[in-house]
């Protein structure tokens, strides 16, 4: 029972305001852990804000968020990845450099083979030396999602993915599904916002905002 509680992610009576807009009031959610949680809602319903709040970037006004048995903030920051809708890659650097430096910033080992392997799986190895400013949105998205394909990423507790399927082609979607399934099988929890109607995963929970 204790271990089950430790793996829970629960939002209790959460209220959040941004500026003058109230985004949530008294929100209660229990996420499926481990498993895939698909957050659905209309535009502006607060899907991205929810992910940002869970990742501590936004501070809730009221309520409690239990992140895997009340993990400390610093431990939680090292135990999850947030992939936002817009790419967070530096335009002045190449795709390879971006990923290498990102791994370094996380305190992970970075070597060229590891980056190349991840890019190859997403089918964008030939773009590794392109500056990000020269790449299309699809390639940027794939480069961004390559961050999930490192060995260290699978050891994390949680992935927060904000509309990861945007700009992706069929091969990209298939490979993303493959790594998401692999992560869930390794006891990982995924919180994904999506507008897609068809869901190809077996074990998932839909959360409507």
């Amino acid at each position: 029972m204790a271990s089950r509680l430790k793996d829970n992610m629960i939002l209790k009576n959460i209220s959040l305001t941004r500026g003058l807009k109230t985004i949530f009031s008294s929100l209660n959610i229990e996420f499926l852990c481990p498993g895939l949680n698909i957050i659905k809602g209309e535009n502006g319903s607060g899907k991205t804000s929810l992910l940002m709040m869970i990742s501590t970037l936004l501070q809730e006004d009221r309520g409690t968020i239990i992140r895997f048995g009340k993990l400390k903030k610093n431990d939680w920051l090292n135990e999850h990845i947030l992939i936002k809708q817009n790419s967070s890659l530096s335009d002045e650097l190449t795709i390879e450099e971006n990923l290498k430096i990102w791994c370094g910033l996380k305190g992970w080992d970075f070597n060229t083979d590891k980056i190349e392997k991840s890019l190859k799986n997403f089918g964008i190895l030939k773009y590794k030396n392109f500056l990000v400013s020269e790449c299309s949105s699809g390639i940027k998205k794939k480069a961004e999602l390559s961050k999930l394909n490192f060995d260290e990423s699978f050891k994390l507790k949680c992935w927060l993915l904000d509309e990861p399927l945007n700009h992706l082609d069929e091969n990209g979607k298939l490979f993303l599904k493959k790594i998401m399934d692999k992560f869930i099988n390794m006891n990982g929890t995924i919180l994904q916002t999506s507008h897609e109607k068809k869901i190809n995963h077996k074990n998932f929970k839909i959360i409507k905002l």
Binding site: S90, L93, E97, G104
Partner: peptide, 24 residues
């Protein structure tokens, strides 16, 4: 998970250096 702080420092300096070099 093992965190290598030396890697963080190297990555940070490398990023800044390359960014300045490319926006000369």
């Amino acid at each position: 998970m093992k965190i290598n702080f030396k890697n963080i420092l190297i990555a940070l300096i490398e990023k800044e250096f390359k960014s300045y070099l490319r926006s000369i």
